[in-house]
Nucleic acid binder design. Sequence first.
RNA 1: UCCUCGGUAGCUCAAUGGUAGAGCAAUCGGCUGUUAACCGAUGGGUUGGGGGUUCAAGUCCCUCCCGAGGAGCCA
Length: 430
Amino acid sequence: MSVVSVSQLKEHPGESVTVRGWLENKRRSGKIAFLQVRDGSGIVQVVASKKELSEEAWEAILEATQESTVAAIGKVNVDPRAPGGVELHASGFRVDHLTEEYPITPKEHGTAFLMEHRHLWLRSSKQRAILGVRSEICQSIRDFFYQREFILIDSPILTPNACEGTSTLFQTDYFGDPAFLSQSGQLYLEPAAAAFGKVYCMGPTFRAEKSKTRRHLMEFWMVEPEVAFLEFDGLQDLAEDFVSYIAERVLERCSENLRVLERDPAKIESITGPFPRITYTKAIEILQEQGQEIAWGDDFGGEDETVLANQFDRPVFVTHFPSEMKAFYMQPDADDPKLALGMDLLAPEGYGEIIGGSQRIHDHDLLLQRIQEHDLPLEAFQWYLDVRKYGSYPHSGFGMGIERCVAWMCGIPHLRETIPYPRMLYKIYP
RNA sequence: UCCUCGGUAGCUCAAUGGUAGAGCAAUCGGCUGUUAACCGAUGGGUUGGGGGUUCAAGUCCCUCCCGAGGAGCCA
């Protein structure tokens, strides 16, 4: 008797097959029982009638508890009464492992309890849907760059110094010397752009900031492309194509997950270019018109981002920020050197900053000056300066937070559900 | 780090300063088409820890711990 995955059952109508999985729920009505069996590919209802089963198999059905490992043998029936349209009419049943007192019951639970049981919460339908979307997004990112002939450059996680010199880093011991967990792969990507032209990295990054909000994690995944000879307008085109492609793939491949999440696909259908592009100065004007208390030179707060994004029906680029509020490596605007060629992409619906990027300084002396102005340790950046010393070239890149993108596509409010095992302020279990 | 709210059965929550309760889960029984099934019964508590006020504290006060929401910081 062949083992068939639940997702493939509709290919075997009338056949007798075995399904192996976990018992999600059971309803019993005297001599007939309905069991929801989940195998990872889907959920199927097993219908079991006492008179059609051996005494042993019927006993196994009575004994089976929620989340027990079970094997159901039976005929595949197409039946409109069954959720999913297909059910298994049992001719045999056994319990391979009996679960006792599974903590997550079919009724409601609080967030704290579910986070404490994250390793089990993963089995819940909503969590499976979110992580399924995450998987598709990561795959679409790799496909996007592969199709455009980018080379994958894995950046290091252990680094000898604070890359951007801004955020708080996790420190560890490297054979007696201090080392830090990476907060960005960008600086390591820029030299690689001179080797391959178009490169990207995707991996975990770490920030030791004591942020306690729905939009922050201590450990999050970031994808960062870096392209030689790409300048500021082209960078925005790339980000626009990139985000549009991800949205298209989620719509195409994740419709069932979106349905489980009750996510309106229209919200994702509207993520197509061109995205509006406004300057920081224009953004401040809009915010002031909307009654936000903000002055030129201030950074956006969470509410500012939401108010600004709500002015548009799709993601919006904000560009040309004051140089002082941005990282040391951003190229100054030729028309107004007070401004940096940096851009943020703000997502609608309050999801905030999805992408941050810039054209990088490619002039050696200017970069050296900026490193000194920011009081960064020059010796640690010697290799980074080398990129501008041996065949310098204009180049640009951006970074996108994977979790923020997943939360946005799924329409869920908190980042903690968008990564299998979130690392949050003071919380690292399980 | 700061502000606000909260911590009572395995879970979600009730309980004027006066006998700690319900639903779900668990256990047992009933039911041949259930959709978080339903019906009946049973077991289940150091009310987050410590201290205080009071004849009497889950309830009021102090303190510590833990959690949630928000702010700041940031992607």
